[in-house]
Amino acid sequence: MIQRNSGRKADELRPMSAKVGVVPNADGSAMFSFGDTVAIAAVYGPRQLHPQHMQDPSTGILRVNYDLLSFSVYDRKKPGPSRRSQEISKVTQWALEPVLDLKEFPNTVIDVQIYILQADAGTRTAGINAASLALAHAGIPMKNLVCSVALGKLDQDIVADLDKSEEDFEGGEGPTDFPIAKIGTGNDFSLLQLDGKIQPERVKEIISLADVTCKQIYEVQKKALKEAFQ
C-alpha cells in the first residue's frame, strides 16, 4: 500500500465540513469542503425563465454554472468560462437532475451557481455536495440528497478523496481520478467520470468504496441541514 502524503488510510476522506445558508440573498445556499477544497453553492428559483423562447411548458429546467474563482489555484485562473468549467457545469447538472421533479415547475428555471474558493482537487464533487445542500435549503422537493466524492487509484491501490499532490502522483500505473456521485446512500450513480488507468475488474472495488464514503458524506450533509433548521 502506498503511503499517502497526508497519512490517511486508503478509504479515509479528508475532514469534511458543511454549512447551509451562506448566501442570504439566495433561495438556498451551502458551503461544503473536503480538506483544503472549499466550494460554495447558491440556488435561485424556481423562477421564470428568460429568454422566453427557452421556456418549456412541459417541464422546468435546471441550469448549473460551476467555476473556479481566479485566486483559488496557484496560477491565477483567468476569469470566465473554459471548456473544463462548461463540462463540469454540465455533468453537475446531470448529477443533480435525477433527484428533482422538474415537471412540477413548468416554464421555470432553477439556477445553481457553484464557485470554488480554494482548490485542492475534488472540486466538482465538493461543488455537487454543496449544490445538493443548497437545493434542499431552497425547499425544492427532492427525492434524496446527492453525495459525491472523487475516488481513484494510486499505482495499484484504490483510494478515496485524492488531494492535488495525489492527483499529480507519478510512478507505477500513475494516478486514476474517478469522481462519482450517488443518490443518497442507495446504489444509483448520477455522476461517473474518470481519467487514468484502471482495470475493468477493479471497478467493483470503486463501487464498494463509493458505498462506504457516500454514507459518511450523507451524514455530514444531513447534520448541516438539521443545524440550519433548528
Binding site: N187, S190, D195, I207
Partner: peptide
C-alpha cells in the same frame, strides 16, 4: 485491459449492477 476515461452524459442514473 485498462479503462482510461469515462463520462456519464444525461440526466439519468446507472445502477451499481448495471456498471458491473
Amino acid at each position: 485491459h485498462v479503462i482510461n476515461s469515462c463520462q456519464k452524459s444525461g440526466a439519468e442514473i446507472f445502477s451499481a449492477s448495471e456498471l458491473e
